[in-house]
């Protein structure tokens, strides 16, 4: 019995003091908050894609003129669009980057770069890769089966950092020349 009243007293005390402190602190509330110091995964991935474009050489016939825009197609869900939208209009040498968001595998054919995100249905992924097979299109993905399915570059996360693997043979088949700088930083997979 004595214990109960003591407990009640104690609880009462906690309640009072908590309310008091909360009131006090709410009254001094500031207005600015910046919590997440870490970068959004897709903002970083988009920046990777831009770099991949800069360190890849396309065959001359890919473009009609030296100023023809560079077409980056993104096959993925809405959630990643914002991150890739920031690349729109960026310069790659004399060309401007033109970012398009596509939903169908057939739309992949006229692209120079095709990014396929992880949420995409596996059948659509295979169709999209088939649509650009042998064509000078740099395919970039982020699923563990991407390289085996015929993709060129695959981004993956290990311990909260991004790595990328490259299948050089596929790159050659797509008539793309990847710079040695890119290859040095990549994990080379497939036939060497």
């Amino acid at each position: 019995m004595k214990k109960d009243t003591e407990l009640a007293k104690r609880l009462n005390r906690i309640c009072c003091s908590t309310v008091f402190l909360l009131l006090l602190l709410f009254s001094t509330l500031g207005n600015a908050f910046a919590f997440d110091q870490r970068m959004g995964e897709y903002a970083v991935k988009a920046a990777f894609v831009l770099n991949f474009a800069r360190y890849t050489q396309w065959p001359d016939e890919s473009f009609v003129s030296p100023t023809e825009p560079f077409k980056l197609c993104v096959l993925g869900n809405k959630a990643i669009e914002e991150a890739f939208q920031t690349l729109n209009g960026k310069k790659i040498e004399s060309r401007t980057l033109d970012v398009r968001f596509i939903t169908k595998a057939e739309d992949a054919a006229p692209c120079n770069i095709l990014f396929i995100s992880e949420g995409i249905d596996h059948a659509i992924l295979l169709d999209a890769l088939a649509a650009v097979k042998g064509k000078p299109v740099l395919t970039i993905g982020e699923t563990k089966t991407f390289i085996n399915s015929g993709g060129v570059i695959n981004l993956f996360n290990r311990k909260e950092r991004l790595y990328f693997e490259i299948n050089e043979t596929t790159a050659q088949k797509q008539h793309l020349k990847l710079s040695s700088r890119l290859l040095k930083l990549a994990i080379i997979v497939g036939d060497k």
Partner: peptide, 17 residues
Amino acid sequence: LTDLSIEDLMGIKVTSV
């Protein structure tokens, strides 16, 4: 981020939300 080199990008800790 788009001004960063690949080396720098590889060093960034990505959100793991």
